[in-house]
Design a protein around this nucleic acid. Sequence first.
DNA 1: TTGTAAGCGTTATCAT
DNA 2: ATGATAACGCTTACAA
Lengths: 343, 343
Amino acid sequence: MEEERTKPVTIKDVAREAGVSIATVSRLLNGLDGVAPERAQRIRDAVEKLHYQPNSMARALKIRESRSIGLIIPDIENPFFPALVRGVEDAAQLHGYAVILCNTDGKPTREEEYMKFLYQKQVDGILFAGNLDFAENSHWLSTIQLPIVLLDRRIPGAPYSAVLSANEDGAYLAVQHLIAQGCRQIAVIGGRARSPVSNERLQGYRQALIDNKMEADEMLCKEGNFSFEGGYQAMESLLAGGKPFDGLFAANDMMAIGALQCLERHGRKVPEEIAVVGYDDIQMAAWYKPALTTMGQPVYEMGRLAVAKLVEEIGGKNVVRQEQILQPHLVVRQSSLRKGQER
Amino acid sequence: MEEERTKPVTIKDVAREAGVSIATVSRLLNGLDGVAPERAQRIRDAVEKLHYQPNSMARALKIRESRSIGLIIPDIENPFFPALVRGVEDAAQLHGYAVILCNTDGKPTREEEYMKFLYQKQVDGILFAGNLDFAENSHWLSTIQLPIVLLDRRIPGAPYSAVLSANEDGAYLAVQHLIAQGCRQIAVIGGRARSPVSNERLQGYRQALIDNKMEADEMLCKEGNFSFEGGYQAMESLLAGGKPFDGLFAANDMMAIGALQCLERHGRKVPEEIAVVGYDDIQMAAWYKPALTTMGQPVYEMGRLAVAKLVEEIGGKNVVRQEQILQPHLVVRQSSLRKGQER
DNA sequence: TTGTAAGCGTTATCAT
DNA sequence: ATGATAACGCTTACAA
């Protein structure tokens, strides 16, 4: 019935079909007024008939915006990130942006590669949840004029807006809670050494000890790489250290669960002997046994806010650098609950 | 020292800087031979000096390929998908493709919207892990000439290649295992009614019953929407049904864990009273207590293979439609293990 | 209100 | 070996 098309249909085809110029088609499609109703209808019919879909590459090239953003995260398999990604994706879609997902494994080289990749891809902006370690010796990053919003972290010296949660406050609350449960020797497992998130949480831990006139003990401070295995190993080493402790704060839930698993293997009772608090409130925290006390964060909301801020910066207005800091909240569960056991 | 640039640097700038024509620059950058070594070096220096990054939009427009692919999935927060996404992402990156991530919540309308969105974005191909009824959409889908590879599902009537795992076989093995553990009345919780994945697993369940001369009982078959809550509700309804059963096969781990939680609430012993097998082998399956017996799939590998196939189809060669079916494997854990308790 | 035409930054054809 | 130059599909002055 209709002719077979093999080439994609362009604005030219629509114009020809409707018997108008391509400029008129373009105007109508972009919602500019000044197109006669009668021709407007003819154009709409043609669009319909030919299944015309504008080529967004051509459009992007012309108006210099691709309507896509990059999202750089360490690892989508880390249970903290899916909810974040979801928030980003939903908000981006609402604003009409496509999201290009990039996993870096936390490797600085991959972070830099992806930045360049995204820049070439002409993304309008980047949501960055990495460590930016490469930036120190990368003149390149500062020369390009690309809106960047930091997600879930503040990076000292990086001149970008950020959306994050109050990690130091959160850790402080977590440790306060342990103390309120009667813990007197509180061990801690941090994430990667250079990670700002980890450092802030460690800082909150220390501050809580100080405010409660307790001593921070180097032997009770281990590093766990934010992973299950890291948490397990750290606990192994804590136990081997011989220094007694009755509480544990882990800088994320994965490590907390690793530690829990190790404690169980060693026959140590949680929370009776050792009370445990994690961070992030991943799904598993609620389902693990014992259920894990942890700090919840408005992750999805963080994703949304970050997109909103990025879109704002892309728009060019309100380019004030700004940190949006959300408050985490304590979720008390079994792993830290010693009922009426103050001493 | 150098002039400040505010506009992005183009191939023109490089050409001027190197004192050659843009054609020569383009040739060098595209690895075509026929550029004098001396000039080649001048060009490379200019590229370096100006931090030139080719505009991939312009390139895409010209050569009609965007080097990006779309990935459509129901929900990144469902623990099955992160590993899949990871496999896709890694492979895509290796092939030089950007991945545009799209969450649909399993809603056919969103799936269709995203398809069109991606088409406009000029993706070179789509990896589709959704439920869209392709028969209804075949018209516009066939007019656009876009390579599509089905991921983790076979969709009846959809004329596309697919990478998936043998769901029917997997379910069959799972149920066989339950029977080997002595189960005689095996209940089942399926996913969404329209989901091909769910249907195949239910089919495997039924076949195993038939081959063992056991009766499938409608009262022991519930639907759980692939979610934790769905599994919980389904078990609630199973228990309320009054029909006794001593085994459960759930079409995914989330539902299995929901069911486990419900069983625990009701004080039913697993695996002694009821043995449970799930599907997917998500992280949590190993850590839940009791640890969940489940069917593992080479998820990451599926992602990789799907990208490989898609890239192949984009390349235009070997456009034979093809199903790549990977084998799932049984992971026996505590939730189904009745030691020597055959009867 | 409408059309013509000049780009956007590339690649590729054609002379030279 | 190299350089003009014409596309690619779109937006947008500028003219009419």
